[in-house]
Design a protein around this nucleic acid. Structure first.
Length: 324
DNA sequence: AAGGTGGTCAACCGCTCTGAG
DNA sequence: GCTCAGAGCGGTTGACCACCT
């Protein structure tokens, strides 16, 4: 399918529009309307293809176009709509008066997409990224390498790695059980939906969640007998994480998105993009989570593994970003 | 001051959709 | 139902600009 573009016709001008061309186009459309776009350039005295004229008019010259920076409300609207519609820029644009699909697309690609990635969200599914899982072995190797560099003796390394292996195995076992057993959802991941809310989900929440999600899917660690006994699980007072296998909102096909948009309790997505993309103080739930690990007092304590700062150091490491 | 790098955004390209004949 | 022209859409490009080294 597909036709050769009308601009292939030789002699037609391409590239940036001059003020004179803009004036011609505006004057013609204001007097005659655009009618047939293909016929327009000839009638208006423009050496352009109709397609180029239409684009220039709809994206730049139209009188009702709102220019300038996107407001917080517009930004949030785009995020919410994109979670439901995906890259349907024209559909998104219909909900933002004065904004063009091209403008929204550019804004998404240059701002919002990057923000979501930085926060650990997959910009396409609006869910926390799980591709970190594929690089987890590298991540662990990196952590070990870091330790090797900082701790010169091999005996220390052997003992440390052994302890870490036990910790990771236990953590994995616990998280697997958490994922399998229905139990109350921890506050940090409660009430998750695509509609703006006052939820205080933070970057820290997401990083924590990503790490926990990654660890929960570890498949390569041999479990020591103490884990199999189940004592570890019993000692941890927080519960299971959201289902990661659900349908990504952006992939919902054939959905009546207008109905979804008008429904505050939309089931189309179970994830909440934070209202503000700026960091906020960590919620109690996350603090409680870290405390829970530390207070167990056994090998699963994050403090004996280096604590949360090891992970945050790692996550900030340029090498990790390359891997991720 | 000059070159390099990254961000932004207008415009283009190629494909799909739609409706008329 | 088929074909084709026109319109529309989303992805990509490239010029321009600001900032950094």
């Amino acid at each position: 399918m597909g036709r050769s573009p009308c601009c292939d016709e030789t002699g037609l001008k391409k590239g940036p529009w001059t003020p004179e061309e803009d004036d011609k186009l505006i004057n013609y459309i204001q007097k005659q309307g655009h009618g047939s776009w293909r016929a327009l350039p000839k009638n208006a005295g423009l050496n352009r293809c109709g397609k180029s004229c239409r684009l220039r008019w709809t994206n730049y010259l139209r009188p009702d176009i709102k220019r300038g920076k996107f407001s917080q409300e517009e930004e949030q609207t785009i995020l919410n709509l994109h979670a439901i519609l995906g890259n349907k820029w024209s559909a998104i644009a219909t909900h933002l008066p004065g904004r063009t699909d091209n403008e929204i697309k550019n804004f998404w690609n240059t701002h919002l997409r990057k923000k979501l990635i930085q926060m650990g969200f997959d910009p396409m599914t609006h869910r926390p990224r799980t591709d970190i899982l594929s690089s987890l072995p590298s991540l662990i190797a990196l952590a070990n390498l870091k330790e090797l560099i900082e701790n010169p003796t091999w005996e220390e390394q052997a003992m440390r790695l052994q302890a870490e292996a036990v910790q990771m195995a236990r953590l994995k076992q616990y998280l697997q059980q958490c994922l399998l057993e229905p139990s109350p959802i921890i506050p940090a991941f409660q009430n998750i939906n695509i509609i703006p809310s006052t939820s205080s989900t933070t970057v820290q929440d997401l990083e924590t969640f990503n790490i926990l999600s990654a660890l929960s899917q570890l498949e390569t660690v041999e479990l020591p007998p103490s884990v199999a006994a189940g004592s570890f699980h019993d000692s941890i007072p927080f519960s299971h994480l959201p289902d990661l296998q659900g349908e990504p909102a952006a992939l919902v096909q054939g959905h009546d998105y207008e109905a979804v948009l008008s429904n505050d309790q939309s089931p189309a997505s179970t994830w909440n993009i934070p209202v503000s993309l700026s960091p906020s103080p960590p919620p109690e739930a996350v603090v409680a989570t870290e405390t829970s690990f530390t207070n167990t007092g056994d090998a699963c304590s994050t403090s004996s593994y280096g604590g949360a700062h090891i992970w945050s150091e790692l996550l900030d490491d340029p090498l990790f970003h390359d891997i991720a």
